[in-house]
Design a binder for these strands. Structure first.
Lengths: 212, 212
DNA sequence: TTAGGAATATTAACAGTGTTAACTATATTT
DNA sequence: AAATATAGTTAACACTGTTAATATTCCTAA
């Protein structure tokens, strides 16, 4: 029964090719410009064929959304080798920041846009999600370790982690949206201190150190 | 020459009616669902007429964007009467949070979407912007006053203000995008402590108090 | 008062979008 | 070989923002 398997594989192959084409378009031109028709053209199939492999556009975008989380999780994983917890926390901030800067479209898809998470709510009932939760638990664990090392002792771990995530997410959002650059260009005195995102992050680290 | 004035007025009137219709649709159904054709239908003109009064859809959305900033600025202005600076800072956080929760579409348009600020960059050369900068300077001034009262003395005012904005913006973004609720629904132990946004904000305030 | 011209508004069209129903060709099973 | 399941396509629907060409209205100047 090798023939059935080969067909299965071919089918899985095409599903992957669709995703690859979508990814290429997405990373080049962003969400809106990634149309079903353009994906179809790239893989040289008719547009409707795509609907045999993915439920709809949101389904494709959700698949990319997952890829993004794998990418970020992988980058976080490396940091487990930084033993000093506060150093690791700082490094996580850097990684998160750089991920947003280097993969702005992924970042948008993962943390800013509504579509993919609404797809989760609608079609992936309850469980799943793994990647995202894993990334957040990396953070809470690091905060926990920091507490053991004498940092943030007065604070609840989860609440503190959420504060850190909020700040980093907000910073990335303001940067990607252009608000930070806009402020740097109008408020001249801000421009002197170098990149506003970098300066703000440095300020945040200083703030965290102040909570030892 | 009252006739010319009347015409001017009529023209300004129609411009406003377009904006009102757009606003109504926008607040009811969001950005994407606010189409030129639907706006036109609402004011009983043909779709193309709208282009005589606004350059394009982004232009209309920019006008709403401005309205949103006026709304928020107005709410901030009231807080000038809170004399104790740290109390005022906390109140600003609350106002910002509630603004995001009560006007999610406005918040998205003002702080999350790319379109309007790209319109500013493309068409409003350099100057203008007022409302947004005014809101931020409300914040920096309050931070400055806090410093005078013994808070955050070790920190640069602008950097600190940017950190505060980032955190509040990130928190609102995570809430509106659904990430916070999603976490509350999966991680059961988080749900017990009440609304996650509220809890996080309380943690932030505590953090700021720790920096006195 | 009437002709000209500007301002205003409309129709028709272009080039797209996501998505579905109906149809065809291919391959597998009975 | 006939029936059936699978894979893919064509055509269409109902939209979108936007522009060019056309019609209508209104004010001004001869």
């Amino acid at each position: 029964m090798g023939i059935k398997e080969r067909k299965e594989k071919h089918k899985e192959d095409l599903r992957q090719r669709i995703l690859d084409a979508a990814k290429e378009l997405f990373l080049k031109d962003g969400y809106d410009a990634t149309s079903i028709r353009k994906i179809a053209e790239k893989i040289e199939f008719s547009p409707t064929t795509i609907y045999l492999y993915y439920k709809d556009k949101a389904d494709i975008m959700y698949a990319l959304h997952q890829e993004g989380f794998k990418l970020l999780s992988g980058q976080f994983l490396v940091l487990q080798h930084v033993h000093e917890p506060f150093e690791r926390l700082k490094a996580m901030g850097r990684v998160y920041m750089n991920f947003a800067l280097n993969n702005p479209d992924f970042y948008e898809l993962m943390f800013i846009m509504k579509e993919p998470i609404e797809f989760v709510k609608a079609h992936c009932q309850g469980e799943e999600w793994e990647e995202g939760e894993q990334a957040f638990s990396s953070l809470t664990m690091t905060v926990e370790h920091c507490k053991a090392a004498g940092y943030f002792t007065k604070f609840d771990t989860t609440t503190f982690a959420l504060n850190i995530w909020s700040l980093m997410h907000g910073l990335c959002g303001l940067k990607l949206q252009g608000h930070l650059d806009h402020m740097a260009s109008t408020k001249v005195e801000l421009f002197e201190g170098g990149d506003l995102m970098e300066v703000t992050f440095a300020g945040f680290v200083k703030m965290l150190e102040g909570l030892k």
